[in-house]
Design a protein around this nucleic acid. Structure first.
Lengths: 222, 222
DNA sequence: TTCTCTCGAACGAACGTTCGAACGGTTTCG
DNA sequence: CGAAACCGTTCGAACGTTCGTTCGAGAGAA
């Protein structure tokens, strides 16, 4: 029954497939999931899926590329016009986590099926990942631009930050854990100032200082 | 040919299987790897493997439980006698990363095949994980024992730290990246004091904020 | 008829697991 | 002492199932 009513029947159905596929991949892993699982879940016959999609790999590719492009585009949008490096860092963390928690299944597929793709698919996703990583490195380097000596390589710092954020898919429970705003503030603060915030790292002042200040810092976010 | 010379022929061969299995699981993922792959790699016939092992799940279980128990035991050993919370935290990070980098394949299997186990196998591993997590939480809470108000839930802080550490298996390259000592110092410092170490978090000098910064930002921006 | 979409049926390959035979060494016992 | 029975170990062959993918027929609108 072609040409019904909606804007684009084909891409709507492809979206349905990808939506269900992301769920199945998130549940059972890419290798553990079968096309039949996706077919059953999306109520499209097994062979019918191949009208919309070339292979199982392409399904994974489409999920990853779409998710990643969206996250990257939103980040660039949110970053536009913001110059302060700390603020830019907080925006990156918030952007990442907000999308993460809003689309947990896609993000799990992105984080967990990192090396399931092969060949051209793999390279295309890697290219976007590199751009995303590059933005983070630039932000990190700007943080230290005012002549402060560097204690960490940008690589280690940025990948550690990504680790914090991406690992969430293994433990986050919506009921139990803070929402995106709270969580991203917490992680930004952790990354920038550590959990011992208020104590100077070396000249450890033995006062219970910096209390209200820390509050304001969190609220003002700069 | 039973009873040759070595101490325990059977457990030696089981170890061989587990060693090769860890490599195969790390390369192709638990679901993506086949018993035949492990058989080929360890030079033991397909059916011969079942003399040493009950099932594919049991192979994964044995790898995970052994690795986890070893890491936990070493941690408890290294922690013995150390009271200072910061020092304890540094020991935990160093213990984790040192083992991680020394046994990268096992650690990847531990970190990546988190929910591949089922039933009793899964619960046994979860129990050890809980103990490990508990130690980290205790250390974190001791860090803040001196009346400082808490900005982070221990849960979020500790799981973020684990995220930093466990994510390493996705990016670490022995040639390129720092060794365990350097890396664990970097991550401990990051966790405790953040990457902005040296700046007080809030007392941001309100200079014409970032002329030179803005320059560089403009150059770097996306 | 042609074009877009759908799907039942089938393909060969690969999967985890099982079975029973065979091997060589040890133990038992006539 | 020699043969038979036994035991721990190994493995080729096969089991039933599931996998990703293909094919060709068919349905309905243009």
């Amino acid at each position: 029954m072609p040409h019904t009513d909606e804007p684009d029947q084909v891409s709507r159905k492809l979206e349905t497939i990808l939506r269900h596929a992301a769920q199945v991949f998130a549940d059972k892993g890419y290798e553990g999931a079968s096309i039949r699982d996706i077919s059953r879940s999306s109520r499209i016959s097994l062979s019918g899926m191949y009208y919309y999609v070339r292979s199982k790999q392409e399904i994974l590719y489409l999920i990853q590329i779409h998710t990643f492009k969206t996250v990257l585009a939103r980040l660039q949008d949110s970053l536009r016009g913001v110059r302060n490096p700390s603020e830019r860092l907080r925006i990156l963390v918030h952007n990442h986590l907000a999308y993460f928690l809003q689309h947990p299944t896609e993000m799990k597929v992105l984080a967990h099926e990192d090396d399931a793709l092969e060949g051209a698919y793999r390279q295309e996703v890697a290219e976007i990942k590199r751009r995303y990583y590059g933005i983070a490195v630039e932000i990190f380097e700007a943080l230290h631009e005012d002549g402060e000596r560097r204690r960490l390589t940008p690589r280690v710092a940025v990948l550690s930050l990504f680790g914090m954020m991406n690992w969430i898919h293994t433990w986050y429970r919506p009921q139990r854990d803070p929402q995106a705003d709270t969580l991203s503030r917490a992680m930004s603060e952790m990354f920038l100032h550590g959990v011992m915030n208020g104590h100077h790292p070396l000249a450890r002042r033995s006062l219970g200082n910096g209390r209200s200040r820390a509050n304001v810092a969190a609220r003002l976010a700069v």
